[in-house]
């Protein structure tokens, strides 16, 4: 049976040649639920981070989505936005997910950014490592701005080159992304971009 991943209502899908041939993907959520999400399609350009693209706005539906995905640990929801993510990540560059601290990852039992990419069928490489277990959401703006480096390069990675695309679930103040971008540039990246599912 096919039911919506969010509201668990049965979904009607009529068989079609396009679906059979894999041209059309079956949506994982119903039309009513998908209408609740609001596309942002925001692009910001800057010096250290050359470009940040965000797909959705942070509205009530998205808040609930994140709650169920991250807090209730509903890994299945990684599938919901795979189509959108894929369309944004169809470009040149090495994809680097923002990593989680191992302790946090064990607590959640999965890395939420990695799972988003896995569901979208996008290959990625982990170049970064979290230095501490801080959570951005719990900090004030001043605290965020004056923080020690959040990331270090993984062992046995020293010199890198070329274009890198960071991926994270949500972009709020940009502290996380800027820390990661600065580190990559320092190590030799010529251009660093970022794609986030949500712009808060």
């Amino acid at each position: 049976m096919n039911e919506c991943l969010l509201c668990a209502q049965p979904m009607r899908s009529s068989p079609s040649w396009r679906a059979l041939l894999g041209i059309d993907e079956n949506s994982k959520i119903c039309l009513d639920c998908s209408k609740m999400f609001e596309r942002a399609d925001i692009v910001e350009e800057g010096a250290s981070l050359n470009r940040i693209t965000s797909v959705f706005t942070y509205n009530e539906a998205m808040r609930e989505f994140l709650h169920q995905y991250k807090f209730l640990q509903d890994v299945a929801l990684a599938d919901v936005f795979s189509k959108e993510l894929r369309s944004y990540l169809r470009k040149e560059g090495t994809i680097v997910p923002i990593p989680m601290h191992l302790e946090k990852k064990r607590e959640r039992t999965f890395a939420h950014v990695d799972e988003l990419l896995k569901s979208a069928g996008i290959s990625y490489s982990h170049l970064l490592e979290k230095t501490g277990t801080e959570v951005m959401g719990e900090k004030t703006k001043e605290q965020r701005l004056s923080m020690a480096p959040l990331f270090r390069l993984k062992e046995n990675i020293e010199k890198i080159d070329g274009i890198y695309i960071l991926v994270d679930d949500i972009y709020t103040t940009g502290t996380t992304l800027r820390h990661a971008a600065a580190l990559l540039k320092e190590a030799g990246a010529t251009r660093v971009e970022a794609v986030t599912l949500i712009r808060a």
Partner: peptide, 26 residues
């Protein structure tokens, strides 16, 4: 269709959870 299997970091292997009663804690 109300179960999902994933690579679990905690038990280091394939792990299956129930989506039917998810809201009461996975």
């Amino acid at each position: 269709y109300r179960f999902t299997t994933f690579e679990c970091v905690k038990c280091e292997g394939a792990c299956t959870y129930c989506r039917n009663c998810l809201k009461m804690g996975r």
